[in-house]
Design a protein around this nucleic acid. Structure first.
Lengths: 126, 126
DNA sequence: TGCATTTCACTACATTTGTCGTGAAATGGC
DNA sequence: GCCATTTCACGACAAATGTAGTGAAATGCA
């Protein structure tokens, strides 16, 4: 399994677009992101290139001979890596204070609370 | 209240040392961090200076005329800001998937689970 | 088949971050 | 009062990030 590479904030947007649906050409990625990030196509291309260098994306030829991009690492793995590093940085690596923080600072519906409590229980006898 | 400034990873270590106990002189901070980060004193001084520029730290003279540093922003505020930005970046701003992720990926004791469930309940009728 | 458009590989350039080094200025001891 | 030590203010410099621009090459269409 490929170790999740270090993905910067802008790069993360690119990854999201491709995790959501891939493969995509550079201009398709640009279009997909157009509503949120108003990036020039070259900006997107630069980020795509860097992500390929980092091993976060792979490329493939599509029918019309142009290049397409697709994830080389699973979103879940990257989320885990980022989460781990965040927890390390801000909460000294401890899950509990982190969970306390978000439990206290989020407004959740009764439904969500029920669901989370169930998950917490399951995390015990597994 | 001062908006929490953007604090980088290395800078965060400095802040922790000062949140934990302040004021401290530059060399005191260096010594405090020595076990973990093996930074040259000048490195620490640079980070201290940058943090003062960013408004994250204030300075004061101590008895012996040398400068001491102390936080200008509360840890809780910075934690909140970092957490918010992390949640935004990785979980699209939604607390539930974040909590789900950490609930599933952490090994918690029965005690901690109980405590967290209580907090979740409280987050409802508040 | 010649031109307009798209794609790409390079280069660029300002900021931020991580890590110090230098050299002057201030201080504490003797 | 003089020297060794500390403290600081600045400058330095490479890597990572954000955000493109240029110019050549490939393609699609009239």
């Amino acid at each position: 399994m490929p170790t999740a590479p270090d993905i910067s904030e802008s790069e993360w947007s690119i990854m999201e677009a491709l995790w959501e649906s891939s493969p995509k050409t550079a201009s398709e990625v640009t279009k997909a992101l157009r509503p949120t990030m108003n990036w020039a196509e070259n900006t997107v291309r630069t980020l795509l290139t860097r992500l390929v260098e980092k091993g976060a994306l792979k490329t493939a030829e599509n029918a019309s001979g142009t290049r397409t991009f697709l994830p080389a690492v699973k979103r879940e793995a990257c989320v885990r890596a980022e989460s781990e590093s965040f927890m390390q940085r801000i909460f000294g690596g401890a899950a509990k204070p982190l969970l306390v923080h978000f439990a206290q600072n989020s407004k959740l519906t009764a439904e969500e609370v029920k669901e989370l409590k169930k998950l917490l229980d399951q995390s015990l006898n597994s």
